[in-house]
Simulated scan of single mutants.
Amino acid sequence: MADLEDIIEAIDHLRPTVPRIVVAITGFGGAGKSTLSRALVEAVPGSVRLHGDDFLDPMRSHLRSRDWDGVERSRIRSEVVEPFRRGEPAIYRPYDWNVGALGPLTTLPEATVLIVDAIALLHPELEGCFDLTVWVDVDLETAAKQGIQRDRQAGSDHDALWDEVWVPNDREFAKTYDPIGQADLLYRAN
């Protein structure tokens, strides 16, 4: 089981041979992906975070799907990862949840390490995109409880979505794609 220092060491190990490193931080909804990603951005010089919720289709992410097709993986690849790898500006339109539509064009800040945190990243559509993959290793039940609590604290009642859509989607995705087995590192917060 990896800790924060192990992930930082793995990134540092890649620096001599990979000029622009892309790291996937993934796991079940509510597992703590964003918390880990923020800690990495603070600890890893030259890093920037891409928040996966900016690439969720608001309609499809609220529907049952065995492959979490509400995650716009093709946009992550074409608008951010590929330009980042080429050293070009990554310009994308994050989803604006307040207005219910794609927001204004946003340019990813210059960096040498891109940390992408989202559900369902370890999928064939993103094969070859990541230099390091990290699974936030929290069991589905615990992750869902954490996610529900987080949403309630933010004033959102998504309990039915968690029970009827998001947990079943996570379960099916894990069964279909084995993201835990694909990950380079398994991380569990202390």
Rank of each mutant, 00 (worst) to 15 (best):
M1Y: 03
A2Y: 06
A2W: 03
D3P: 03
L4E: 13
E5Y: 02
I7E: 10
I11E: 11
P19K: 15
V22R: 12
A24N: 10
I25W: 03
K33Q: 05
K33A: 05
A39E: 14
L40N: 13
V41D: 08
A43W: 02
V48D: 05
V48Y: 13
L50K: 12
H51R: 15
G52M: 10
S61V: 12
D67K: 07
D69E: 14
G70R: 10
V71F: 03
I76P: 07
E82A: 15
P83R: 08
R86A: 15
E88P: 06
A90R: 13
I91P: 04
D96T: 09
W97S: 11
V99H: 11
V99T: 15
V99F: 04
A101V: 04
L108W: 05
E110W: 02
A111Q: 03
A111N: 05
L114C: 06
H123M: 08
P124K: 13
L126Y: 03
F130N: 09
L132K: 04
V136S: 08
K145D: 02
Q146W: 03
I148E: 06
R150E: 00
R150T: 00
D151M: 06
Q153L: 12
A154I: 00
G155I: 01
D159G: 05
A160Q: 13
A160P: 01
L161Y: 14
L161S: 14
W162V: 03
D163R: 15
V165C: 09
V165D: 06
W166D: 04
D170G: 12
E172F: 02
F173A: 02
Y177F: 15
A183Q: 05
A183H: 04
